[in-house]
Amino acid sequence: MNTLHWLSCLIAHNIKQQFSDRKNFLILSFVMFAQNLLFFQMWTIMFSRISNINGWKMEQVAFLFGSLTFGFGIFFFLMGGSNLIARQIHSGALDSFLAQPRPVILSVLFQRIRPDSFGDFLTGLLILLFYVPLAFKPLLLSMILGVSSGLVMVALRITIESLAFWQLSEEAVDNTFISAIIAASNPQVGYGPIAKILILTIIPTGYVAFLPVEIMRSFSMPLFLWQLVASVVCITVAVVVFYRGLRNYSSGNNIIMMR
């Protein structure tokens, strides 16, 4: 409870700080919103010429893009520190979080909010409202799936950023995450069994879009529960990897100092 209280205070503080410069906040989120919609036009243009890709129609791609940006937006808005981990590992800036009597991972993730991700959230919301049937059940389902795929994205980000504990450079971390996002955020069609097993186990990009789209197309309770459990497992693994890497943190620093 104590931790929750602290966390809510931290988030409230971050939001208040961000809103002190309201103009900046609005510009950042609007530009993100606009560029997302612009990017989305690629798919609308393509589906004006192509009827389907192995059964994936515009609705599927729109749901994929919408739920992804929706969930992504929520988590990355609140956990603005998620893309700073590698940088802070290399610069030694984690020290200040280690000194706090709070869970390190939470301090790191919630150290700031990212105003541009609010634009992601808005894009996602708009696309979902536009392409998902306007009824309570499908909308709720799409949002729950969006949140769970957002959680998987955060888990991927934390895991990849934590690789910096094992001396992976910042640029490599960024590029690895871009690869993951490309793999996750495009239509995943015609995968063979090996590829399917891969994206649902070792490289869990399948939980970002592949499985949610299947669930959205024809709802089945077991698949839905599988998705929810998998997203929780992903974030747990991410936290474990982070803490495992954190043990390397001090020793890593010593090596740098001895050079």
């Binding site: 192509i50 495009n186 995943q188 015609g190």
Partner: peptide, 13 residues
């Protein structure tokens, strides 16, 4: 990713 997408587009289109 895109090679699978392109290969699964309807050929006639």
């Amino acid at each position: 990713i895109f090679s699978t997408i392109f290969r699964h587009m309807p050929l006639h289109e």
